[in-house]
């Protein structure tokens, strides 16, 4: 019924868009826009699931789309938003190891790296070019997410980085429809608990004055780093 729609083209477009959101997450400093980017990414992921559902008619994909919408577009961003308010900081300015401009170059390098490293394996695995693309982009996205985790200062950003990794992995799994739904649900539960935990902990950590004090102490006693309960 929807033969007219060039499904592969749409999928490609969505994948590219996801990568662009990823690149933006890597470079943006404003926490609010970081969160929106993540929300957008999750939304795109949901669309991807829907498009794939339209192509294959597998109900699990539909369920997943719903699940993604509920958790990644609504619940998790909500929690993070609450956390942001609690901490009361809006920008994550400093970058560790990599500056934003370089991080984009590195992102490109990562894509090529994933492509060349996995080309043989993926060739063995499938003839489907889309799956191929999805796999490469998924891994690249995961690596980018990890880059965010180590190059940004604030726990909020790190959490978003982690969530982006998770999204990268999800792009993978979306193409493989038969992964038991139970597992998907458990993964989401896991994710939610993690975000909650990170949120609670981050409130303890990221409150800027506290961090300042910790820094001060570290400057005072550079050798000491153990001790109290």
């Amino acid at each position: 019924m929807i033969d007219a729609i060039p499904i592969p083209g749409i999928i490609q477009a969505i994948l590219v868009l996801i990568m662009i959101t990823g690149a933006l997450i890597v470079t943006r400093k404003d926490l609010l826009s970081l969160l929106s980017m993540y929300r957008l990414q999750s939304l795109l992921l949901m669309f991807l699931a829907l498009v794939l559902y339209a192509e294959s008619g597998n109900y699990v994909l539909l369920q997943m789309a719903v699940l993604t919408l509920a958790s990644k577009v609504l619940l998790i961003p909500y929690i993070i938003r609450r956390m942001q308010k609690e901490i009361n900081i809006s920008k994550d300015i400093s970058f560790h190891y990599i500056s934003p401009a370089y991080s984009l170059f590195i992102t490109v390098a990562l894509i090529f790296f994933s492509y060349y490293s996995l080309s043989k394996t993926l060739n063995e695995l499938t003839d489907n070019k889309l799956f191929y693309l999805g796999a490469v982009f998924g891994i690249s996205l995961a690596l980018m997410g990890m880059m965010v985790t180590f190059s940004r200062k604030k726990i909020v950003t790190k959490t978003i980085g982690y969530l982006m990794m998770e999204n990268g992995a999800l792009i993978f799994s979306i193409f493989i429809t038969e992964l038991p739904f139970l597992i998907e649900v458990l993964i989401i539960i896991d994710l939610v608990i993690l975000v909650l935990l990170a949120a609670i902990l981050a409130v303890g950590m990221d409150s800027s004055i506290e961090e300042f004090q910790a820094k001060l102490e570290r400057i005072k006693h550079p050798a000491r780093n153990g001790g109290t309960h």
């Binding site: 990268g168 992995a169 950590m205």
Partner: peptide, 30 residues
């Protein structure tokens, strides 16, 4: 606070790397 710091490290380091396990599992499944 140091405990929170330690806990966060614990979570982030193992969780980020464990995402790759999921990718591996997907490959295996495929």
């Amino acid at each position: 606070q140091k405990n929170i710091d330690a806990a966060l490290k614990y979570v982030f380091i193992s969780s980020t790397v464990m995402v790759f396990t999921f990718i591996g599992l997907v490959l295996l499944f495929t």
